[in-house]
Nucleic acid binder design. Structure first.
Lengths: 236, 236
DNA sequence: ACCTGAACACCGTTCAAGT
DNA sequence: ACCTGAACACCGTTCAAGT
C-alpha cells in the first residue's frame, strides 16, 4: 500500500491548487471580460501547460461553476453575524452585499448566469432568506414563493446591471460613451418611444442602488401584505 | 453612375437573406444548445462558405443580437390588439406571451442574456408596459421604476427557468434526471438545508406558470399600493 | 498523482481573388 | 455587391509519455 497520507496535507507534488486556478480565472475575467478566461489563458497565468488544468477540474464549465460558488460563498461569509436588525434590514443587507460582491466581477457574472445556481453556497443563501422570511412571520408556502421571487429579482438586477455596463472585453464603441448612469436614448428613439425616453431621464436621476433597493422593498411589500390574507407581521 | 436600383428589391444577386441566416441560427440553437450556433455551422446550414455570413452581419455578436430582437418582435406583434381587459390582465398577457415565446428557445435565451436588451423591439415592449402602468393611474416616476422592476423580473424568471431546465447541448447527466418540475434536493442537501428542502417540495407542487404569475401580481401589488402614498387606482 | 509535448477537431475572422 | 478558397490565430480537450 503506497501510504494514502491520511493527513492529506502534503498529498503529493502538485504545483498548483484549485484556488490558484480560480484566482487566475477571476483575474482574467476582470481584466478581459467573459471571453478572457480560456483554459489556455488560465494555464499560462499560473505557469503550467494548458492541459495541466484538467488535473484539478474535469472541464472548463467546472472551473466557471466553482468560481461562481466561491463568489457566492464570500457573500454568505460576509453576512455570518446573526443580524440584530429587524428582518427587512437583514434582507436588505444581504441583497446589498450580494450585489456589491457580484457586480465587482461583471465578466464572472456573465458566465455564471449561463448555468444554474445550485451549488451549496447558493443553497445556503436561499436557506438564509427562508429563515429571515420565517422570522418575519411569513407562512412557509408564501415564504417559499417569496424567496424564489427575491432570488430572481436580485440576480436579475445584477445581470441587467452587468450587461448594461460595458464589459472590459468589448471595446465600448465611442458613439455611446455617455456618462449618465442609465444611458439616454437617441433623438430618433426618443421620438418613437416617448414614455421610455421620459422614464430614462426620470430614473437616470437616481443612483442605481436606490432603484435596486426601491424594487426590493416593493417586492417585500408584495410578499408580506398579499393574499392569502395575512397580517402576522411583528411590530416594528 | 451604376444605377442605384431605387426600388431596392432586386438589389443584387445575393443567395441569402438576413432572415434565412437567423432561421438557421435559431434552428441550430434549438437543436444543439447555446454553443451550436457557430458561424461555420450557420453557413453550412444555409449552404454557403463560412465567411459569406459576414456579408450580412459584421460579426457573430450581431447575429445573436438580431436574433434576440426578432424574438422580442414576435412578442410585440403578438400583443398588438389594444387589449380590452383591465390593465392587470394586459400586463399578465404580455408577461405570459413573453415567457412562452422565449422559453421555447432556451439556447437563444442563454445567449441573449449575455448582452444588453436595448434594440427597438425591446424598447417597444418597455414603452407598452409604461403605457399600461400610466393607464392604471401610476404616476410617471413610479411607473418608470415599476416598469424596470417588471422587466427585471420577467427576464430574470425566464433566465432562471431556462438555465434550470437542461439545454439540449449539455448531455444531462443521468444522476439528476428527476421528473419533477423543480428538482428536489439530495438527502445530504436536505439535511443541511431543511427550509430549502421544504420549500422545494412546496413549490414543486405548483405549476411553474402559476409561480410566475404569483410573483408578477405580488410585484404589481408592490408597485401600485406603495409609497409615495398613492390611491389613484381606477375602479375595476 | 501530476505535469508535459503533441495532436485533433474545432472556432471567429480576415484577405485576396473571382464574378 | 456578393461569394469563394485559403489562411491566421486562436479554442477545449485527449492521448501517450515522462516523473
Amino acid at each position: 500500500m503506497p501510504t494514502p497520507a491520511k493527513g492529506r496535507l502534503p498529498r503529493s507534488r502538485r504545483l498548483l491548487s484549485e484556488e490558484e486556478i480560480l484566482d487566475a480565472a477571476l483575474d482574467l475575467l476582470d481584466e478581459g471580460g467573459p471571453d478572457a478566461a480560456s483554459v489556455r489563458g488560465i494555464a499560462a497565468r499560473v505557469g503550467v501547460a494548458p492541459n495541466a488544468v484538467y488535473t484539478y477540474f474535469p472541464d472548463k464549465a467546472s472551473v466557471i461553476k466553482a468560481l461562481g460558488e466561491r463568489l457566492l460563498g464570500e457573500v454568505q461569509q460576509g453576512s455570518l453575524h446573526p443580524c440584530d436588525q429587524p428582518w427587512r434590514g437583514c434582507v436588505e443587507a444581504l441583497a446589498l452585499d450580494l450585489r456589491g460582491r457580484l457586480t465587482a466581477h461583471p465578466g464572472a457574472v456573465t458566465l455564471m448566469i449561463g448555468g444554474p445556481l445550485d451549488g451549496p453556497h447558493a443553497l445556503a443563501l436561499q436557506e438564509r432568506l427562508l429563515q429571515l422570511l420565517a422570522d418575519a412571520g411569513v407562512p412557509p408556502d408564501q415564504a417559499a414563493r417569496g424567496a424564489h421571487l427575491l432570488i430572481v429579482y436580485v440576480f436579475g438586477s445584477i445581470a441587467v446591471e452587468v450587461t448594461e455596463r460595458g464589459q472590459p472585453g468589448q471595446p465600448a464603441k465611442d458613439t455611446d460613451r455617455l456618462p449618465s448612469p442609465r444611458r439616454a436614448l437617441s433623438d430618433a428613439q426618443a421620438q418613437q418611444f416617448p414614455r421610455s425616453a421620459a422614464a430614462a431621464t426620470l430614473i437616470g436621476s437616481h443612483a442605481s442602488t436606490e432603484q435596486y433597493l426601491w424594487g426590493l422593498h416593493r417586492l417585500l411589500d408584495g410578499i408580506t401584505v398579499s393574499p392569502p390574507p395575512f397580517e402576522n407581521q411583528p411590530p416594528t
